[in-house]
């Protein structure tokens, strides 16, 4: 039963995506069923579009930097919330997950107003820190949920056996926390990789990302080209999480 249901959820989740892939080979102007022939027309058209390739590179760089910075910020914060008692904890915890409560349109414009007031031009650093703020809540939520399940006693035992706090973290907490940290990184990568609205406001003309391009294409191009781009993104990106999965397993077995 559970297995069947899970299978159905998968089918439901992937049918539209598979439809995108299939339709990207439809030579017709308006990719819809039934298929009429098979062609690489839209891919060829896409390959002439050098701005998309640049955007893709920007997206990858931005996503990776965001993932690293966001976990570097988020894990210590999660430790603080779960392992320590201090004043204003509830409030600060709410504050740190606030970015998901605020619609990105608002956040986008808000940050711009501030930057304009500071009289600073936009830059890649701004975009990056902005994305870190956007993704931080996810890292926090995931890491906290996991940290709750790791008993404090393990750490205390290590400390009482003479390990310093850093060693304790490295030998005890980190391995236990690794799945959550990994999940947090993947999450922040994908959120950053996927973000449209905030990036729309924060990115300069030189560091546009793929979703922003697609958002623009919605207005300016025909759908099969978007399908083709979707297919390319699927193929290129599918390999990345699989690689990550492989590395994490090696990492896990190597502990």
């Amino acid at each position: 039963m559970i297995r069947l249901f899970t299978l159905l959820v998968y089918v439901w989740m992937f049918t539209p995506i598979i439809a995108v892939i299939i339709l990207s080979f439809n030579p017709q102007q308006f990719g819809s069923f039934p298929m009429e022939g098979f062609s690489f027309k839209w891919f060829v058209k896409l390959s002439h579009n050098s701005t998309i390739l640049d955007a893709f590179k920007n997206s990858l760089v931005l996503g990776s930097c965001t993932a690293v910075l966001s976990t570097a910020f988020g894990v210590p914060a999660a430790m603080a919330f779960i392992r320590y008692e201090f004043r204003g904890k509830q409030f600060l915890n709410t504050l740190l997950i606030a970015p998901i409560m605020i619609p990105e349109v608002v956040l986008g414009v808000a940050l711009l107003l501030f930057i304009r007031w500071l009289q600073q031009p936009k830059s890649f650093a701004l975009l990056l820190i902005g994305h870190v703020v956007l993704t931080l809540p996810y890292v926090l939520l995931i890491v906290q949920a996991r940290l709750v399940g790791i008993k404090k006693e393990y750490e205390e035992a290590a400390l009482s056996l003479g390990a310093n706090p850093f060693q304790t973290f490295k030998e005890i907490t980190f391995p236990l926390l690794a799945p959550a940290i990994f999940a947090g990184m993947l999450f922040s990568f994908t959120i950053s990789f996927d973000d449209v609205t905030a990036t729309l406001f924060w990115a300069t003309a030189q560091n546009q990302t793929v979703p922003v391009k697609i958002f623009g294409m919605l207005r300016n191009s025909v759908s099969p080209e978007i399908n083709a781009l979707g297919t390319v993104m699927i193929i290129l990106t599918v390999s990345t999480p699989f690689l990550a999965g492989y590395l994490s397993r090696r990492f896990a077995s190597g502990k």
Partner: peptide, 8 residues
């Protein structure tokens, strides 16, 4: 699905 653009 996360890896595929939300818009797509």
């Amino acid at each position: 699905p996360f890896w595929i653009s939300f818009i797509i």
